[in-house]
Each structure stands twice: as structure tokens, then as C-alpha cells.
């Protein structure tokens, strides 16, 4: 799956399926400070991302 980070850089993850919250924490991102867009739709972070998904992370909280 492809992860588009807040700075617009793209990371490709090898894992086949994982809750988005776990992916965020793995990347050092606090889920309360971002919004997750999966394949163009906003989703809660407990949704599972699978192979072929595009996950865009929108950061809005500056600082920390």
C-alpha cells in the first residue's frame, strides 16, 4: 500500500493488511493530530488498510 505523508512524500509499505492506527503509530504520528483519507474517502483510524490502498495523511495540528 502507498502512504502519502503530510509533507507529500510517498512511502510504500510491504505489509498486506493493518489497522491504519497502527501504521500511524509506527510512523510516529499521533492519530488525534491527523485525518486519514483512504482511496479518496475520509475514514476513522481503526479501519484496516489492505494491499493496493492509497492512504493520505492530512496533518492540521502544528507544533509537536
Amino acid at each position: 500500500m502507498q502512504i502519502i505523508l503530510p509533507d507529500r512524500s510517498v512511502r510504500t509499505l510491504a505489509c498486506t493488511s493493518a489497522p491504519i492506527e497502527e501504521i500511524l503509530l509506527e510512523l510516529g504520528i499521533n492519530p488525534t493530530t491527523v485525518i486519514v483519507v483512504k482511496n479518496g474517502k475520509i475514514v476513522p483510524e481503526d479501519v484496516i488498510a489492505t494491499e493496493g490502498d492509497e492512504i493520505r495523511i492530512v496533518r492540521f495540528s502544528h507544533g509537536g
Binding site: P19, K41, I42, V43, P44, D46, V47, I48
Partner: peptide, 19 residues
């Protein structure tokens, strides 16, 4: 699967947020 259950509590459409 959490994603299969990600439906609006009111109408069943795909949910955008969990409150």
C-alpha cells in the same frame, strides 16, 4: 473486520468518523 463494520450508526453508509 473493523473495516467491514465501518458504517454510519444512523443510516449504514460508509462512516467518516468515530465519536
Amino acid at each position: 473486520m473493523a473495516s467491514a463494520e465501518n458504517r454510519c450508526s444512523l443510516c449504514g453508509e460508509p462512516a467518516v468518523a468515530r465519536l
